[in-house]
Structure formats: structure tokens, C-alpha cells
Amino acid sequence: MTEHRPRIYVSDHDGPDPHTTHPAHEYIELCGGPLDGQLLDITRLTAEERTTGALLITSHGPHGPGGRADYEPSTGEAGRWNWLGDVP
């Protein structure tokens, strides 16, 4: 049986292996929406950015390529951001 490794969110599809985490980095899980189950590297986010969330580029939402998925930190669970909806 193969081990399931979550996909790492990257907006650049020419980027590094989408399944490789780095030990010195901090990740949160995206929950719901088009990026459900992916991990987001928040290592370089400021404290304010970590509390407000992010609009993440995705081609899997209703707005097609270039659309954004809106995620914000979960109020009930650290390490998770919940999907709020999609924007163009």
C-alpha cells in the first residue's frame, strides 16, 4: 500500500515537487472548496496575514483559470484554514 502524501499548494505549476514538505517550513491544511486537503506553506506570511487568510489562485473553481479561492483561519482548529467561497 502506498503512503498518501497531501499535495502542497503552489500557484506556480513549474515549482518544486507538489508532495514534498520541508522540515523548516510551517504548513496549514486547506479545508473545503477547490483546494480541499492541500497544504499551504505559511512560513513567510506575516502575523497579520496568518490571521486574515488568503485569496489563492486556482483553476478548479467556478471562475476557471485565474480565479481565486478565499480561505481564512479556522476559529476552532489551529493548523486549518476554511474555504469561504470563490472570487474572479
Rank of each mutant, 00 (worst) to 15 (best):
D36G: 12
D70V: 11
E3T: 12
D14G: 00
L55V: 02
P73C: 04
I8N: 01
G79C: 08
E49Y: 03
Y71F: 11
P65R: 15
Y71W: 05
G76K: 08
W81S: 02
Y9D: 01
S74M: 05
L56W: 05
R5P: 02
E3K: 15
T46C: 08
T52E: 12
P65V: 13
M1A: 05
D70Y: 12
P34V: 00
M1P: 14
H13A: 09
W83N: 13
D17Q: 03
A24D: 12
P34I: 00
H25F: 01
P6I: 08
E48L: 14
E29A: 06
R50H: 12
G33Y: 02
W83T: 01
G64H: 10
S74T: 09
P18M: 02
Y71C: 05
A69Q: 01
E29F: 02
H63Q: 10
L84E: 06
D86H: 04
P62M: 07
H63I: 13
P18G: 04
H19I: 09
P73L: 06
L39W: 07
H25T: 00
R50P: 11
A47V: 14
T58P: 11
G79H: 11
A24N: 04
T21H: 05
P23N: 10
L84W: 05
R44H: 11
A54L: 04
R80E: 08
E48Q: 11
R68S: 09
R68K: 07
Y71K: 10
L35P: 07
G53S: 13
P18H: 04
I28N: 12
S11R: 09
H19M: 07
I42P: 03
P23I: 15
H13T: 10
T20E: 10
S11N: 04
T75S: 03
T21V: 05
T52C: 09
T43N: 03
L30M: 08
D14C: 02
G66C: 15
T51A: 15
C31V: 15
D36K: 08
S59Y: 01
I57M: 03
G67C: 14
Y27M: 12
G15L: 04
G33C: 04
L56M: 06
S74K: 12
T58V: 07
R5C: 04
R50N: 15
L30G: 04
L84N: 10
R44P: 02
G64K: 04
E3C: 08
G64Y: 07
H22K: 12
L45N: 08
S11M: 04
E72H: 12
G15C: 07
T52P: 01
T2D: 09
Y9G: 01
E49P: 07
H4F: 13
R50G: 14
I28F: 14
P65C: 11
G66E: 03
A78L: 14
H19G: 07
Y71G: 07
D36Q: 06
A54Y: 01
D17T: 11
L84M: 14
T52R: 13
R50M: 09
T46A: 00
A47G: 14
L40P: 14
D70L: 14
G61E: 14
D36P: 06
P6A: 13
D17Y: 05
T58I: 02
S59L: 00
G33L: 05
Y71A: 06
Y27L: 10
N82Y: 02
T51V: 02
D70K: 12
E48G: 11
L56P: 01
H13R: 11
V10M: 12
L84G: 14
M1E: 09
D41P: 10
A47K: 15
P23G: 06
H22R: 13
